[in-house]
Amino acid sequence: MDLLNNFLFIALPYIALTVFLIGTIYRYKGTKFKFSSLSSQFLEGKKLFWGSVPFHYGIMVLFFGHLTAFLLPDVILSWNSSPLRLMILEVSAFIFGISALVGMFSLLIRRKTNPRIEIITSKMDLLIELMLLIQIFFGLWVAYEYRWGSSWFASVMSPYLTSIFTLNPQIDAVSRMPWVIKIHVSLAFTIVLLIPFTRLVHLLVFPLSYLWRPYQKVIWNWNRKKIRDPKTLLNVTRSKNN
């Protein structure tokens, strides 16, 4: 049992994070053409709405919820000190979980039933979508069965994750968790491990910078002010799109 726990909560996280880091950097630098969200809306638009929108908004809220509980456990715990606020947090998180589950499920159905979408489906697409579906399912199970997740995540998981990131893994508490939670945690790290091998890389390039860039973009092959000045010809400046 110790061996398994050591593997799941020490080895797996470090393998996952290493592969994730090296893999995504390599993919971003080396194979930029393949870095895409690979949207299939152009081939089928209506069913995508009922899958993509509930899934993405659901999973985004859940992701940032987990992130907040990990980074700011004290905030979550003090929020949860009042039962009403705890209920609000738990119920709304559960609703977003359902939304993600329904979304992912309808995306999978769409992927398997629409012949056009099937053509552009890779094995990794199916694998990662199945894993996400199972992961969301286990997440909901945990939330329903082992209440209240937000509180014990802040008090147990947050220190564990911190210990992972500070290279001083403390797994005593997680090792005593019920097996459902253990699966949820291990699957999470497996998904992180798989990110560089799937289309999930698109979440790393969410175009937030769009918000502050000017609308129009003009690129010059050379510095147009300097090009006519013979003195600057020898001045080596890299052109912007090479």
Binding site: V205, P207, Y210, Q216, K217, R224
Partner: peptide, 18 residues
């Protein structure tokens, strides 16, 4: 005043200056 350039969230579309 290309609308495609303005709409691209990644900033992949651009107008060549020259």
């Amino acid at each position: 005043n290309p609308a495609c350039v303005a709409s691209c969230p990644s900033g992949a579309i651009y107008k060549r200056g020259e």
